[in-house]
Amino acid sequence: MNTVVITGASSGIGLETALLLTQKGYNVLGIGRSEINCNRAKEWILSKNPDANITFYLADLMQQGEITRAADEINEYLNEKCNGKLYALINNAGCVRSWYMTTNEGYEQQFALNHLAGFLLTYKLMPALLKAGGRVIMTGSQSHKGIKINWDNIMLQKRYNPLTAYKQSKLCNMLFAKGLNDRFAIHGIRAYVVDPGLVKTDIGNKETGALVNFIWSLRKRHGVPPSVPAETYAFLCDKKNAPEGLYYCLCKEKKYSRQVTSENADRLFKLSERLCGVHYGEVLKI
């Protein structure tokens, strides 16, 4: 049985994807930040699919120390139960903020969770992914378009705009996937970004101010249920031969921003390595 890790599996898109993948016979390891939400998610999945193989790990992915701890726990599990192999990693946990807020490291929260958390977790799980010739899938968004990375001010400390921070973090997802393919495709790894479309979840109602709350509550009414984008993740996991594209929506390849170049991807890769204190090159040495 193939094992898949999904971050942010306690609600929304991650939760539906976790359910669908258990139904397709995957062993799913979910990561969430709240014990209550994780327990509720697990119960819900088991109520829909009593045979589900589902385990939850608790970690606040906004904190680098917790990412490392959770990754160690997962690696231990993989070594014991799965011959050290991880078939897929879905970096899905994400957030929206109304204000400039920082993590313990002083990093802007949307950038830290939506991009850096996935970057560091992927690094930590890379040995297991390499063993399985695995796939890495990011939850991106159409909103990665129409924006450039603000290289001199990537945390948007000067002139913070919450929407810009969100869009930029989603462009980072694209660049990270591109950077992974540039480096690891020859080692059997493929990276993708899924555009879930507009989805009816509570993302804009969590830890946001009255204004964002209100706007999101109106907007999400037009959204599709999270079971719709879940199909695209299952599609990317199920295909025997890894699909060649980068950006997928509704199980089909989609056009992406012209900002997604190898040059920008390299630049973000280096910056992210510095901000996480890791070097991907070292994974290949062991």
Binding site: W99, Y100, M101, L156, Q157, K158, R159, Y160, E207, G209, A210, L211, N213
Partner: peptide
């Protein structure tokens, strides 16, 4: 503090100062 401001509604949000520009 975020929940506190949320509880004060729009006036709470209006008297809220952005941390990054206050610092600068």
């Amino acid at each position: 503090t975020m929940l506190g401001i949320k509880a004060q509604g729009l006036l709470g949000e209006a008297t809220t100062n952005p941390l990054e520009s206050v610092s600068r």
